[in-house]
């Protein structure tokens, strides 16, 4: 019925990659997100949907280590013991954000260094994790540019000379080159033309499947959620109102708000 993107042995992993418990964040009196709990397992792709202002981006920022939640825990299990990412020093959290997981921003300018060449943008991440062999770094950067369909001859160009779709693909290469287990994406196809979106979506679908990535994708586009995610969380006014398997939530929505969302689009 849909194309599944998890690796074959997803159900055999012994422990969740991410455990979220009662995460809340407030902006003064206003609720950003409230009391969100869930687990994400290796290879799972979770979508967070809802209208603008529903708290989905606020939640993503808390999960990705960008904004400290006012309450609750974000436990990340890398290779060893689970780690509360807000209990470690700022510097250690920054290091994790560059190596253990990746963040794809809606606006590529927020994720790229615009004054550094395309190859440099990708290679920099390898140097962050300790790679020092220049030839190998350049080779891996070239390989990743090819995987996101950027011609090798553009390697020394700066991102500002690229189209929006190319910038977004470059950002994805920069995030994935360091082989994170987990990727956060905030509206990865937002602001792109429909034809450019289609190419990017297919690329993401294939990369997520081939790399066995776990991902959390914030989107307001239910068709994007249908294509890329295994599970879905629906948010309204900072609260999760419904969650489940993506096709269950979209085809047999139970909450009034989810029914409104799914009936408001022409066809997903």
């Amino acid at each position: 019925m849909t194309v599944h993107v998890s690796p074959p042995d997803a159900a055999l992993d012994p422990a969740p990659l991410l455990s979220i418990a009662r995460v809340s964040r407030f902006y003064g009196e206003r609720i950003g997100c409230a009391d969100v709990s869930f687990e994400l397992w290796p290879g799972e792709v979770l979508g967070i949907v809802g209208e603008s202002g529903s708290g989905k981006s606020t939640l993503l920022r808390c999960l990705a280590g960008i904004d400290r939640p006012d309450a609750g825990e974000v436990l990340f299990r890398g290779s060893g013991q689970p780690l509360d990412i807000y209990s470690v020093a700022e510097q250690e959290r920054r290091r994790l954000m560059r190596t253990a997981w990746g963040i794809v921003h809606q606006n590529p300018r927020d994720g790229l260094r615009m004054d550094v060449s395309a190859g440099g943008n990708v290679g920099e991440r390898l140097m962050d994790r300790g790679d020092r062999h220049y030839g190998q770094i350049r080779e891996r950067a070239l390989d990743w540019l090819a995987r996101v369909e950027i011609a090798g001859e553009r390697m020394d160009d700066r991102p500002r000379q690229f189209s929006g779709g190319m910038q977004q693909r470059l950002q994805i290469a920069r995030v994935l080159v360091s082989e994170p287990k987990l990727v956060f994406m905030d509206e990865p196809t937002g602001g792109l033309d429909v034809s450019v979106q289609a190419r990017l979506l297919d690329l993401l679908r294939v990369l997520v499947r081939d790399l066995g990535l776990a991902a959390i994708i914030v989107t307001h586009d239910l068709a994007v959620a249908r294509l890329l995610t295994d599970r879905l969380m629906v948010m309204k006014d900072g609260h999760v109102v419904e969650q489940g398997l993506t096709d269950q939530v979209l085809d047999d929505p139970h909450h009034a708000y989810t029914q409104l969302l799914t009936s408001a689009v022409l066809s997903v």
């Binding site: 599944h4 998890s6 997803a10 159900a11 799972e44 295994d230």
Partner: peptide, 9 residues
């Protein structure tokens, strides 16, 4: 969900 997906796969 991940068990349902494994059953389907």
């Amino acid at each position: 969900p991940r068990t349902v997906l494994d059953i389907r796969r």
